[in-house]
C-alpha cells in the first residue's frame, strides 16, 4: 500500500513521517516514532490504554487515523516530563498503589490529568464516571480513584 507523508507535532517536535492510509495514530507513535509508552489494549476504542492528548484533549489513538492528525499537536506519556500536574499525579499514583502491571498506566495518567484540569471540584462518583473509558484489569480502580482525588484535594488546598 502506498505511504503518504504526514506532518504533525509530537511532544513539541515537528515530525514528518510516511504512513499507509490505514495506519492508526497509536501504531504511528509506537512504530515510526519509537514512542512505546502509548499502549494498545483493544484497537477498537474501548479500553483507553492508547489514550494520548490530541490538540489539548484526550483521544484514543487506536481509532484515530494517523492521516487525520495532519497538522495536529500530539502529546504522549513521554511528553509530560515538565508538567507539574503530571508530576503530582505520578507521585499520587505511586503513593496510592494505583498501578500494578503498568499497562493501563500511561492512558490512565493522560485521562487523569484531563480530569484534574477540567473538573477541579470532581468528587469520587464523578471521577469514577470520567474513568469509565479507561479499563484496568489489575488494580480494581481504588488506588487510581484515590490518587486522582488526592491531587484534586492538593490543588484545591493551594
Amino acid at each position: 500500500m502506498t505511504r503518504r507523508p504526514i506532518t504533525l507535532t509530537v511532544n513539541g517536535r515537528a515530525e514528518t513521517v510516511l504512513a499507509e492510509p490505514r495506519t492508526h495514530l497509536a501504531d504511528l507513535l509506537r512504530g515510526e516514532l519509537l514512542l512505546t509508552g502509548t499502549h494498545i489494549g483493544c484497537e477498537h476504542g474501548v479500553c483507553g490504554a492508547c489514550t494520548v492528548e490530541v490538540d489539548g484533549a484526550p483521544a484514543r489513538s487506536c481509532i484515530l487515523h494517523a492521516g487525520a492528525c495532519e497538522g495536529s499537536g500530539i502529546r504522549t506519556i513521554e511528553g509530560f516530563d515538565a508538567d507539574p500536574v503530571m508530576a503530582a499525579l505520578r507521585e499520587a499514583f505511586s503513593a496510592e498503589h494505583a498501578l500494578q502491571c503498568g499497562y493501563c498506566t500511561p492512558g490512565m495518567l493522560v485521562t487523569a490529568r484531563d480530569i484534574v484540569l477540567r473538573l477541579p471540584e470532581a468528587d469520587e462518583a464523578r471521577v469514577r464516571e470520567e474513568l469509565a473509558g479507561n479499563l484496568c484489569r489489575c488494580t480494581g480502580y481504588r488506588g487510581i480513584v484515590h490518587a486522582i482525588l488526592r491531587v484534586l484535594a492538593e490543588r484545591r488546598a493551594t
Partner: peptide
C-alpha cells in the same frame, strides 16, 4: 514500602514484547 518498579511505568518506560522491534 512504595514500589520500586513504579517509576518506569509512570513514565511510559515499561518494556513489553510489543515495544521490542
Amino acid at each position: 514500602l512504595r514500589r520500586k518498579e513504579d517509576a518506569r511505568f509512570l513514565h511510559g518506560r515499561g518494556r513489553y514484547v510489543g515495544d521490542i522491534a
